[in-house]
């Protein structure tokens, strides 16, 4: 059997990789790719805790389904924002969008 620790370490690694992507990438679409990796890492944790806890309590899987829905909504709105910004400013580089910076 696989111990719970393996899943948790895998999820922590995937989350850290996603965090790295969010922090360092310049392209706004690439930043959203990093967010997707982080959401997937969280989902692995949720499903692993469902499997290793009381299996008749479905909260872990229900939470994972809600995370799917939120991720789909986040990507749809985020990419619409990127495309809208690209139309107006002709750039998708996050550090060029400094309108609110003094």
């Amino acid at each position: 059997m696989i111990p719970l620790s393996w899943y948790l370490i895998l999820a922590a690694g995937l989350f850290s990789i996603g965090l790295f992507g969010v922090l360092v990438r310049r392209n706004a679409v690439a930043i959203l790719l990093g967010v997707e990796l982080m959401l997937n890492a969280v989902n692995i944790n949720l499903v692993a805790f469902w499997r290793y806890g009381d299996i008749s309590l479905m909260a872990g899987q229900v939470f994972a389904i809600i995370v799917f829905a939120v991720a789909a909504a986040e990507v749809a709105v985020g990419l619409a924002l990127v495309i809208s910004v690209y139309r107006r400013r002709n750039t998708v580089v996050a550090e060029d969008l400094d309108l609110l910076k003094w």
Partner: peptide, 14 residues
């Protein structure tokens, strides 16, 4: 849809 920036000239990371 944001093609011109996909192969951007600057560095990929800040």
């Amino acid at each position: 849809l944001t093609r011109r920036q996909a192969a951007e000239t600057g560095p990929a990371m800040n």
